[in-house]
Write a protein that binds this DNA or RNA. Structure first.
Lengths: 183, 183
DNA sequence: ATTTCATAGAACGGAGCTGTTCAATGAAAG
DNA sequence: CTTTCATTGAACAGCTCCGTTCTATGAAAT
């Protein structure tokens, strides 16, 4: 039955967000799903398939901000502000999961693999932002580093959570950093 | 015997740096120290005492850069550059341990407690740097956030490792970000 | 009406870790 | 020389997880 499968992946996603993938056990998933451990193994013979199902499930529910509209924005500053604001709004909604997943990626190889599409997306975002500034860039290395840094989730965590900035203020600060690398 | 105790704490520190505190087991420590598990329990009845011994051992071997000289530097820019450069050099030497400890702090309460002195040190550093700029600061909130962000280990990780910047270049970039908050 | 199949429920052996206990060894201190 | 004490080595019960196996139930498909 399809509903059983979904209850399992939903339970897994729930636990990944609550305690993190590293601490999530098959036993825990089965219990939360109200299912026998055995049943989990039937649907997902390998952890790999389970992780894949979780990724689909989660990213399906939390799609990344669409980058297409940003490409239409000619002004580098506007493009940057728009993209960063959207991205930071998105981070608010996926905070728990990203916090746990990025933390556990270092210890659980499967988690790192599951994050690769997201990492690729961030690289795309960064490339689009860099492109806008590229023509006038006098320090391309610094520009690239600054944009990639701005786009990362740990940077959002630092500025928003630990430094207590409002998202718009954080965007302002990072915009200044990035634009300090262009004339 | 005192040497046994030190072999135990050294083994523990070694494992904390290699695989992280969260994955470090008493059994593993005993084995690496070439000692019976029992012996570990004798010297450190509670995990708390073991962690305390590890902290002393590690911070003793890797003392934080002295902040006193920085207070003598009148120029805010010079003070900032000097301090950040020293701090970033220090981060190179404690990278593994900080990477693991900060990651595991979220899941192992004892690790978080052990890190509090270090966190306090970073706050001191930030305060000293902010002080230098404070008189001319027109946006104190931004200034404070920027300095705290610059001083954090995750920021160093991002700029140095993931963005691939040279330390001096990273310092330059962050200096610009910070100084963009003052006239 | 019968077969098929997903699931429940229970159990197995194996692994790794925990904290504790016991007896044996050996070295240093009195 | 004798006592004290740190350490060894081995064992115990306990816990949680793993992956697998068996039987039983029940519902849906044919």
């Amino acid at each position: 039955m399809e509903t059983t499968r979904r209850r399992i992946t939903q339970a897994a996603v729930e636990l990944h967000g609550r305690i993190g993938p590293a601490q999530t056990t098959i036993a825990g998933i089965a219990e939360l799903a109200g299912v026998q451990r055995h049943t989990v193994y039937r649907h997902f013979p390998t952890e790999e398939e389970l992780f894949a199902a979780c990724s689909s499930e989660y990213w399906g529910d939390h799609p990344w901000p669409d980058v297409m509209p940003w490409k239409e924005i000619g002004s580098p500053s506007d493009r940057l502000t728009t993209a960063l604001t959207a991205l930071y709004g998105y981070y608010e909604t996926v905070e728990q999961m990203l916090t746990n997943a990025l933390r556990d990626a270092a210890t659980v190889p499967l988690v790192e693999r599951s994050l690769q599409p997201f990492t690729g997306y961030l690289d795309d975002v960064a490339a689009i932002l860099i492109d806008a500034y590229a023509p006038q860039a006098t320090e391309p290395v610094l520009l690239k580093a600054a944009v990639h840094h701005a786009v990362e989730f740990p940077t959002w965590q630092s500025l928003i959570h630990r430094q207590g900035l409002q998202p718009e203020v954080a965007v302002t600060l990072l915009t200044r950093m990035i634009e300090s690398t262009t004339p």
